[in-house]
Amino acid sequence: MSDNNSKTTAAQGPAYGDEGVGADGPGCAVGLKAADYKSGKRPVWCAGCGDYGVLNSIFNALAELQVDPDNLAVISGIGCSSRLPGYIKTYGFHGAHGRAVPVACGVKVANPALTVLTVGGDGDGFSIGGGHVSHACRRNIDITYIVMDNEIYGLTKGQISPTSPVGARAKSNPYGTVESPVNPMLLVLAYGGTFVARGYASQPKQLVQLLADGMRHKGLSFIHVLSPCVTFNKAAGYDFFKERVQDMPADHKTDDLMGAMRLAADESRFYTGLFYKSDRPEYTEGLRRSGRKLEAPPPVDIEAMIHQFS
């Protein structure tokens, strides 16, 4: 039928490119600075929001890897942090609440040569969209998923989130929540995430490195970023995190899953850094190995089809 046999690349369009090469492959631009990734639109975030620090770190990580903005897609759901794609000069998809991860999976499978960032908040990723994260991890699909966790619903002006601690008071829980929070790090480690890290919005140097390493990683990278909400969650502001954020113990080995889980489970502090990394085969690569013809896909074989159905 329609598909010709010419070899395509990402820059030529998606159906279908060379095998995914991600951020460090061909098609990268040269000499891009962090500022070159700015869309120029002013963020809607409050002054002091942790998401500014995350956005800046993303700019720097993209520049470090020299990601071509034309071969990048930034996917989000709904929430304060989900407005982030609008601030990057690239292809962005600000979609539906909780559904950033499946949309990102579709983008990556359709065109494995794209670098795919997925961004959102704790509510988007671990409440309404919680059912998707496990499956994206299971597939180990090569997307970088950045969750900006402020332990509150900010866009709707202050209701508890799945990561709010027991006793947290908010408009939706004036007497204090009686539910225990989820622990995103523990969940993703248990789901089989192959690159699991935590950063803090106020530690840009470390965060840039984690983001860049996450984008380099072939497989699902999960980066949990502590990103304070200065307007609706004063209980978990910069002071709160300053006391609790701590670098990973120097002796932690990143292939030690149980060790990573122990550190993630420590509720007295927030360890930051790379918790765990493994080299399980990536999804689109697995498809290629199991017979998906990405390079020069042949047209539909009409006679084979006739044979099969007659």
């Binding site: 292809y91 499946p102 949309v103 579709g106 990556k108 359709a110 794209l114």
Partner: peptide
């Protein structure tokens, strides 16, 4: 969601 993502791509 995946369909929309793939179509977007």
């Amino acid at each position: 969601g995946m369909v929309l993502g793939a179509s977007f791509a």
